[in-house]
Design a protein around this nucleic acid. Structure first.
Length: 270
DNA sequence: CGACACACCTGGATGC
DNA sequence: TGCATCCAGGTGTGTC
């Protein structure tokens, strides 16, 4: 469910409440998320002070002296701050109790998320093959263009490959390609260097703006303070099949690409 | 290595 | 109202 703007929104919501706070207890109700919850979370996290709340790609990292808890929200995961003592509901899989009497509660109906552990000075295997952050200095048009040489897969699938660039999921890939005027079905290797420069810029701009707006709430995304995001009001193609393109008035189309619904404008995306 | 299908899981919307 | 079907923001794994 969450792409980079939603995870970053979650991070910003967590940061002021978690930084410098001690975790006094970890309560696990069910451990069978995408992978079993790492035993270190139960064994090492209690008693630790959270030094920082970081994000890498779509992972949140709660950093402590003993290591970092690594949280992925999957498709339907959400973290919320609640008063300790509030009864958990069916899909509330774990709580971190904090020294200030509140708790951080993780809810995830589909259980595609995970809670893993990264030892001090190590890099978790899941973080090893990730591409650059789209809002960082290592991401630019020539990076995309270089990696796309000879690739035949659709440029949209290429853009969603987390080893190319992280954080771009199904919504923002469609939006960025529309803003750049690129047909999502075009082979990655057949997009020009100049158009990759445009695409890198639209990815950066759209992700930044979506973060400003608090992310996109389609169904159930909420930030840790319980607020929804407002970017869905700005979507130009995602979920708009049959509606007029805001730029050229042609009807937005939907096709399947790499197994994902892909929205685009057949007139202004080439 | 690259491309692709499939898997994981639940709930909500839709259609009959 | 009930039930079947399809779809959903992610991503690792297996196969060719």
């Amino acid at each position: 469910m969450p792409e980079l703007p939603e995870v970053e929104t979650a991070r910003r919501g967590l940061e002021p409440h978690l930084t410098g706070r001690r975790v006094i207890e970890v309560r696990l109700r069910r451990s069978d998320l995408r992978w079993p919850i790492a035993h270190e979370v139960r064994e090492l996290l209690p008693g630790q002070r959270i030094a920082a709340v970081d994000r890498r790609a779509k992972y949140l990292l709660l950093a402590t002296a003993a290591g970092s808890a690594l949280v992925h929200l999957g498709m339907s995961g959400a973290l919320r701050f609640l008063d300790a003592g509030l009864k958990p509901a069916m899909h509330d899989h774990y709580d971190l109790l904090l020294e200030d009497g509140r708790l951080l509660r993780y809810s995830d109906p589909r259980r595609f998320g995970c809670l893993l552990w990264q030892g001090p000075g190590t890099l978790h295997p899941l973080l090893r093959r990730l591409g650059p952050e789209p809002l960082g200095p290592g991401f630019h048009g020539d990076h995309l263009w270089q990696l796309a040489r000879g690739r035949t897969l659709a440029v949209k699938a290429f853009l969603m490959d987390q080893s190319i660039v992280v954080g771009v999921g199904n919504i923002y890939a469609a939006e960025a390609l529309h803003a750049a005027g690129i047909d999502p079905r075009r082979s990655a290797g057949r997009v020009s260097r100049a158009r990759y420069a445009m695409l890198a810029a639209t990815v950066r701009d759209i992700l930044s703006y979506a973060i400003e707006r608090g992310g996109t709430t389609l169904r159930d995304f909420i930030n840790p303070d319980g607020q929804p995001g407002y970017f869905e009001q700005e979507l130009n193609v995602y979920g708009r099949e049959g509606q007029p393109c805001r730029r050229c008035n042609a009807r937005i189309q939907c096709v399947q690409l790499g197994g994902r619904s892909t929205f685009y404008c057949p007139r202004c995306q080439r």
